[in-house]
Every structure is written in C-alpha cells, then in structure tokens.
Write a protein that binds this DNA or RNA. Structure first.
Lengths: 191, 191
DNA sequence: CTTCCCCAATTGAACGTTCATTCGGTTTGC
DNA sequence: GCAAACCGAATGAACGTTCAATTGGGGAAG
C-alpha cells in the first residue's frame, strides 16, 4: 500500500472506532469529521461518498488481516506448530483490534457484502486455503476440502474473539490452548 | 407466545426481509409499512419506536431458534445421535430462514447487542450449555467448559449457514456430514 | 332485529430533525 | 503564484414520528 496521508488514516481510524460504538447507521459523516479533526468537506476530498469510504475502509482492514496470515504462515516450521501460531496470531490480532473486528462483522453482514469479490479472489481466504491445502498435502490434515477447513478454523477464531471483545465471556490462556487443541483434534489425521 | 395480531406478524416478516436486502439502515419505516401493507402510523400502534421494533423482532427470532434447540435436544436417543441431529436441525433452520439469519447477525454485531442479557440468562445459550454439559457428564465429550463447546458448535453452524446463504460457497450433503464429523472428532472423548 | 355508540385499529399527510453532500472561499506547500 | 488540500456554513432530500380524522366491529339499549 502506498503511504497514506495522515488525514486519510485519521478518517479510517475514527470511522472504525465510531462504527464500533454507534453502529453503521448512527455514525454521521459530521461525527467522523469532528472525531478525526478534519472538516466535513475534507472527507470528500479523499472519498467519493460515505459508501466509498466504508468500502475502502474494509479493504484497508482486510489487508491488515491478510498481513497477519502472511506473517504467520511464512514461518519455516512443522505444519502443526504453524497452524497453532496462525490461530493464535489471528486471535490476538482480532482481540487487540476490537474496532476492526466489529466493523468487519458489520460489513460482511450488510448489503455491502455484495461488493466483495467471490471467495476465490478473496486474498484472505485464498491464503488460508493454500495453507490448509498444504496441511492436507503433507498428510497432517484429513482429506477434506480446504474450504471446509478454512471455515471451521476462521469461525472458531472469530466467535471466540467476538465473545471476548463483547465482554460476555472471557478466556484464559489455558482455555485458548484447549480450543486450538479441540480444533486440531477435529481436523488432523490421526497417525 | 400468545398469539399475535396478523399485522404485527406482517410487520415482523417485512422488517426481516427488508433488513436482509437493504440492511439495517436503509430500511425506513415507510418502506416497512408499504411492504407489510399497513400505514406508517399503524406500526406505531404496535411498537413504540423503530428501535423497539428491532429489539422485539430479535426476541421473536431468537424464540424460534430456541424452539429448534428444544425440539432437537429433547429426543430420547444416544448423545452422539442427538448432537448430530441438533447440528443439522440448527443448520437447516438457518439455511431455510436466511432473512432471520442475516437479521440475527446484524443485530448481534450492532450496538443493540448491549440490550441483550448476559450469556447466563440467554435462553438459547443456556439450553446449548445444558445439552453439552450432559455430554460431558455422560463422558461422551472431553472435559472442557461447556461454553467452549457451545461456541465451537454454534460458530461452525453459523459460518457454514452464512456462507451458503450468501451463495459464495455451497455444501452438499456429504460435505455437511463431514463437517459435523470433524467437529465431533474434535470435542468427543476417544474411548 | 335494528339502532346507536364506543373505542381500538388504522390511515397518511404533515412536521421537525438529521444527515450526506456541495461549493465558494481560504490556507498551505512548493 | 498556483495547485492541491482544507474548511464549514448552506442545501435539500430523507427519515422517524405525530396526530387529527376515519373506519369497523361488537355490545348495549330499545
């Protein structure tokens, strides 16, 4: 990503934070502007419309998630260790970025979802697919479609992170390890 | 639930359908009214406000999901069979009610989430907890907190149903059975 | 059985507010 | 001195909500 203007970044950050607190509706452009310390008109210097802002913000957020997957899967370690690292890496990322997580979930459950590319072109899922496919190829994982493995893996991460972020439940380190282990027990080949 | 007026049901159904298509914002009261075949004012005869309508609709929707869990877990069968039935029952319910599913997801990721009771008082999760706790007690499932088992189970159902509903991926019967089996392999005790 | 009345249900135009967006002007960096 | 960045009051459309007026069904009175 070419480096962004400070203002643009501020607008992104403010939008995520405010959407988390007030929801997608309930976050007027004027509020974003004030929070980001810019004038309302300035937002329109960087973004065509509110819709465009939201969509670009989604891409921006997704790129950060993609970076996490890239970082964690490029390690040169046994597959199993890599899998656990990836799980924990993504979980930590979501937990430490609750604004992003919430925005993400709102987006994919909104009509904007239609503007997303099909799964095959989705960089995030492509990376996840590829990684899990590798696990199947190396006979570490059961002979199951990588898309299924990807859904199970990611959904476990998301649901735990969401529940923790909402404060409705919390999980200690031991429990997190248990969760990863349960998931692994489910998808791994038993030698 | 005491029986509802036809109009109230029509308003509920229309709201769910329109929220699915247009999102939470993007669904004005006037649109709900027209779609439900009533005047705008009529909605305010049944509901205090748009917010109230949304919240009551969530309760209404959740009761339907609760009914599915009750139906599937009350069967007098071995735990494992019951577990598979519950998974499939909930999945089928969500798949056949995509409007409800989408509305549900929008709601829990919005600021309205704060109006929900804590998890312990949540009838849906209480039932799920109790059922999985039974599995632990009967030594069918690993000695893990039922809340963890509940999250993993429900998140797998939701993510598969959501992906299928959005048309981004589809799953045939064999794949659905595979998914349940993977999940079971993860959480079941190996005798 | 008819008439009358009551009140809950229903209507939809009107109101006031909020919001996304615009635009003429100002500042800043080069 | 000239773009590009930035400002923020003004604009007009859209929306949630209100309310005065209308309807309709059912029970009481005759």
């Amino acid at each position: 990503m070419e480096q962004m203007s400070d203002k643009k970044t501020a607008i992104f950050k403010s939008t995520m934070e405010l959407v988390r607190e007030n929801g997608f509706h309930g976050t007027p452009m004027s509020m974003i502007a004030k929070h980001a310390g810019v004038a309302a008109g300035t937002i329109y210097h960087y973004f065509e419309s509110k819709e465009q802002l939201i969509c670009e913000l989604f891409c921006y957020a997704q790129q950060q998630a993609v970076a996490v997957v890239e970082r964690e899967t490029s390690v040169n370690e046994p597959f199993k260790a890599c899998f656990f690292k990836l799980w924990m890496g993504l979980y930590t990322f979501y937990r430490d970025n609750p604004d992003l997580l919430r925005f993400f979930e709102q987006f994919v459950n909104s009509p904007y979802q239609a503007t997303m590319p099909p799964l095959e072109e989705d960089r995030f899922y492509s990376l996840l697919f590829a990684f899990l496919e590798q696990g199947v190829r190396e006979r570490e994982l059961k002979e199951v479609s990588p898309k299924i493995l990807a859904m199970l893996t990611h959904s476990s991460i998301l649901s735990i992170a969401k529940t923790a972020a909402s404060g409705r439940l919390s999980f200690n380190k031991k429990e997190l390890q248990q969760i990863q282990q349960l998931l692994w027990d489910g998808i791994a080949r038993n030698h």
